[in-house]
């Protein structure tokens, strides 16, 4: 990705100044962490505001189960630090790709453990950010329970950099599961899931159902025996596209995909589903994914395409913001300085 201008502020004050620079130049900016996601969606030639220099842990309080980090810190580095204290924040990306903590929040995309652990937004306690019109602000607090004011933390999560530049994040932590283990079976997901008590993750590929159990080893063994699970390696995920839809609509969606797949013109799609979450990962040709997108949207869902080489938009028409979204975006970024093109690419 080539860029005309770029800033790499070292702290929040410099971030405010950088935004002011862009404003005075009449420019809108793209906020960028490691680029692990941005590089996978179609980009333009816009100025970039990088959070890369906002690195490091500000405060880790193991007894409070909280950690405060600067937005540009790599998530896997944070994970290693936390692991030394036997703690984790289970919002890892789908693949280890150098994502930053800020990026994790901005995209809200998480791996299969969100089935048991909850979504990214459920682990965010406080966010410090710079609004589009250049004001440093914060939302939430460092306590694990907090209903003071509107939940702007969760609002920032998954806003893809359109509301503010995230500079610092406080995350909720938990103990690392002692013996996580992947299992697999040929029994289909609904049957397996019904026999398990709150599995950490369930992932279905064309042939098998993969299950991650993080319980006490004795419990995991008993659960595995009940559900006919065999120890197995962790599943791998197709990485080209990700569909999100109502879990109730997922079987219909998969059936339609399969039908399209088996027809002569249907280019082969690799599909990995997380049924209870309503998530699907897909690999395939541009044509196949375009068709998949129309099927997803017909089922009320959305498809995110993470390969700019395919010539497809990252976000589909299902992502077109409604009036309320536009009003909220304008409230925090009144002049449209923060990736105003976001949902159109």
């Amino acid at each position: 990705m080539t860029t005309s201008t770029s800033w790499e502020p070292a702290d929040a004050d410099e971030m405010v100044a950088a935004l002011a620079d862009a404003r005075s130049a009449g420019q809108a900016v793209e906020v960028r962490g490691s680029g692990s996601v941005l590089d996978r969606i179609p980009g333009g030639d816009e100025p970039v505001l990088s959070t890369a220099a906002l690195d490091g842990i500000v405060d880790h309080a193991p007894e409070d189960l909280t950690v405060t980090v600067r937005a540009g810190m790599a998530f896997d580095e944070l994970a290693q630090e936390l692991a030394q204290h036997g703690q984790e924040c289970p919002i890892e990306p789908i693949v280890d790709d150098g994502a930053t903590v800020g990026g994790r929040l901005a995209t809200g995309l998480a791996g299969p453990r969100q089935l048991g652990a909850g979504r990214v937004r459920d682990w965010v306690l406080r966010v410090r950010f710079i609004t589009g019109d250049g004001h440093p602000a914060s939302a939430g607090g460092v306590t694990v329970k907090d209903v003071t004011g509107y939940d702007v933390c969760r609002l920032m999560t998954g806003s893809w950099g359109t509301l503010g530049v995230i500079t610092e994040v406080t995350l909720k932590l938990r103990p690392i599961p002692r013996q996580p283990a992947w299992f697999a079976t040929e029994t289909p997901d609904p049957t397996v899931a019904a026999r398990l008590y709150r599995p950490a993750a369930v992932v279905t590929t064309a042939e098998r159902t993969h299950v991650l159990l993080e319980e006490h080893p004795d419990d995991a063994a008993a659960q595995a025996a009940d559900a006919g699970l065999e120890p197995a390696a962790a599943p791998t995920f197709p990485a080209t596209a990700r569909a999100a839809l109502d879990p109730a609509a997922l079987p219909g969606f998969l059936a339609e995909l399969q039908h399209a797949n088996s027809s002569p013109e249907g280019a082969a799609l690799q599909v990995t589903a997380q049924g209870q979450l309503g998530l699907c990962h897909l690999d395939g040709s541009a044509d196949a994914l375009a068709r998949a997108r129309s099927v997803v949207e017909r089922h009320g869902g959305r498809l995110l395409v993470l390969d700019p080489a395919l010539g497809l938009a990252a976000f589909g028409s299902g992502h077109a913001p409604d009036a309320m979204t536009n009003r909220v975006t304008a409230a925090l970024d009144p002049d449209g300085r923060l990736a105003p093109w976001r949902w159109e690419r």
Partner: peptide, 11 residues
Amino acid sequence: GRAPEQGGLDL
């Protein structure tokens, strides 16, 4: 809505 990660603001 009922799906995760709708890719819009979490209003």
